[in-house]
Computed example of a mutant assay.
Amino acid sequence: MGVQFGSFDSICETAALVICSLVGTAQGIEPSCYSRNVEVGGTIIFQPSTSFVHIVAIIMTAIMIFHIRSKYTAVGRKEIVMFFYMYIVIELLAMFLDSNIIPTANSSYPWFAAIYTGLVAAAYCCLLINGFVGFQFAEDGTPLSLWFMRIACLVVFGVSFFISIATFKGFAGFSYSKPIGLWIIYILWPIICAAVYVVSQLVLVFRTLEDRWPLGDIIFGAAFYTVGNVLLFAFSVTICDAIKHYIDGLFFFTLCMLLSVMMVYKYWDSITREDLEFSVGSKAAVWEVKDPLLSTGLDYSEEDTVSNYHGGGVAPSLVGGVSGQQLYQKGGMGGRGYPPSDRY
């Protein structure tokens, strides 16, 4: 059975998503095949391989955030770092939800799942807005640009959170048996945002950049994103059966999403150049001598053979053609020495 608009039945039967235990029926929808569990210290951990990828994603995202923050004058630095902050929180929350550290039977699970859904929708909104930062509709880093992004992401988060929790709890006209609104924000909205971001960056590269190498980052990022979704929604059961339940499509989906996010960072890093005049670095500047007169290694104190300070003779004066010593030495310049001999 293929994917139907507004229905999670076929999706959740294939992929073990965070929300699958909260939609469809009162007991949720159980996937046909999922990764086997492990027991650690008396606690059963679901999706151990996927949880490991979540940990790796958190570490890698922290490294990317550090490098972004170190580029003090790069274009769109404050805007893009907000996306990575959201992603690191999403990965942290997904690790607790996927691994069943927060049990699905716990009364707090729907609330955490709603927060997770809202953060995912807000992160895609942030990525969408970042796609237009390079066009400079509003100057990057200004209060207008930053607050527009913050308010937009907050609105998307609030709407998505409300739709999610209303669907899980079945109030305000929403129902877990017909989660059309949740399907739109969880399945359709990310695809739209990712597609618009890719198209906008292709336009940006072709219209404003002379370098075409960033196209490779865009292509790889889009490829990882597409492959991850295909493996999750089409081949998760096949992978799970073939590898005897050790991993499933969720593992490859999480890994591909990490690679896609890394390509977003790589693309942003490749199209931004820091203004070194105003940059602040941790290393001291190394100045290279370019003047050949300063790099000959000569000792000028030894070369100055005509200086009086080295006994090299009488140096001519720049005024009057004679030096003070020539003028005032006794017997010099026709007896004009000092003191005059006729007075003493």
Rank of each mutant, 00 (worst) to 15 (best):
D9Q: 09
Q27E: 15
L22N: 03
V38Q: 00
V38F: 00
S10Y: 13
Y34A: 12
S32L: 08
R36F: 05
T43P: 01
E13Q: 04
T43W: 07
I19Q: 06
G24L: 05
C20H: 14
C33T: 08
P31L: 10
R36V: 04
A26S: 15
G41F: 13
R36H: 09
V23S: 05
G24N: 11
D9W: 03
G41P: 12
T14W: 02
T43A: 04
L17I: 13
E13S: 02
I19A: 02
E30H: 11
S35E: 15
C20N: 14
D9R: 04
Y34S: 15
C20M: 14
T14A: 07
T14E: 15
A16Y: 07
C33E: 08
E30R: 13
G41V: 08
I29W: 00
V23T: 09
A15I: 09
S21L: 02
I19N: 03
A16T: 11
E30K: 14
S32Q: 07
Y34G: 09
G28H: 06
G42M: 08
T14P: 03
S10L: 11
Y34P: 04
T43E: 05
C12Y: 00
V38P: 00
V40C: 03
S10V: 14
C33F: 05
C20P: 15
E39H: 02
S35K: 06
Q27K: 15
T43Q: 10
E39F: 01
L22S: 04
